[in-house]
Computed example of a mutant assay.
Amino acid sequence: MLTKELSREVEEIRRRFGIVGRREELAKMLIAARGRKHILLEGPVGVGKTFLARALAEYLCRDFIRVDGDERLDENKLLGYWDPPIVLKMGYVEEAFVPGPLTRAALSGSILFINELNRLPESAQNALLPAMDEGIIQIPHLGTLRAKEGFLIIATQNPEEDIGVYRLSEALRDRFVLIKLGYPSREEEIEIVKAQVPDVEERIAEISVDIVRKTREHPVIVRGCSVRSSIDLARITSLMDGGDEKWYTSALMTLPQRIETGDSSIDKESLVKELVRSVLGGYRGDFPVQRDLQRSR
């Protein structure tokens, strides 16, 4: 049960940043931030994890320092490094140290946003632990640095991702509170499309959302399209003339490369055409016969 004050703050964030839905998620994020707990946002691509994190940072008047998970972002790059020419000239003085994003966020009391945390190599993940635990960072030759009040880590991970990722250690997972984000409801997704595509026709917004949502439901599609796909489909279709044909054209431009199937032999373009045909048939009141999957291969 949310307090009146917390509910008021959630509505203020939604109003200020144009956020559709997400009342429960925002409330949890506010509670975690006020409780000085680091936040792990888990959800599929394109559900607004980065947007929510940035909105929270701005609402709390904290700087937002972003890094993207990458195997090249090792411990030294995350913490910082010594500038060789200055070290040779002046030694290991403070001026010779170039702070990395973790150190900069800690010393300034900022929010460090780590996109796709599970793409960080193990050494970088381990470097987060002392800062998350005690608010301290150990830099050889420089000593112990202490985080300023307000320092917080918000990280994301895509639960469906399994290629090019590292398993999060139990120690690291234990230092986050987990907040899960799913896809918005159909009505919310239509509202998001209308907000992102100026002057879009209601019917175009509805059909775009329905086509994209079909990709998340189809039994042979392992990973469907994101909310961003609904926005892109509506935007591109709005720029086209013609009847049904424009939907096939715009869908083939925006969707095949964004879906993953459980069978590499499936023709994604044929599959997308079938989904478009099914949705358009429903809007006309038709009841198209479902073709056998083999017809789409």
Rank of each mutant, 00 (worst) to 15 (best):
L112T: 00
I211H: 06
V98E: 14
L128H: 11
K37L: 12
M29I: 08
T254G: 07
G164F: 00
G43N: 08
L252C: 03
L255P: 00
L142N: 06
E116V: 01
S169L: 12
V212G: 07
V227K: 03
A55L: 12
E122Q: 15
L128R: 06
I259V: 14
E206F: 11
G48S: 01
F64H: 03
N115A: 14
Q294A: 14
V47E: 05
V227G: 06
D199V: 00
H38R: 03
S270I: 08
N126P: 11
E189G: 01
G281E: 06
D267K: 07
E245Y: 15
E161N: 00
P219S: 10
A57T: 02
R284A: 09
E149K: 15
E161C: 05
D63H: 08
R235C: 05
S229G: 14
S229I: 02
Y283W: 14
A127I: 00
G18Y: 07
P85T: 06
E191D: 09
L117H: 00
I259Y: 10
E134F: 10
P85G: 10
Q294W: 15
I13L: 14
R216P: 08
V279T: 05
G80I: 04
I204E: 06
V212S: 03
D63A: 12
H218Q: 09
L79G: 13
R54T: 04
R34S: 05
I39T: 04
V279C: 11
E206P: 08
I179C: 11
P101I: 01
L107M: 11
N115P: 05
A33Q: 07
V193M: 09
R295F: 14
D174M: 04
V200T: 01
N76A: 15
A32N: 01
D74F: 06
V177H: 03
M132H: 10
P44L: 05
R235L: 08
I139T: 09
I139V: 13
F151H: 04
E188H: 12
I266N: 03
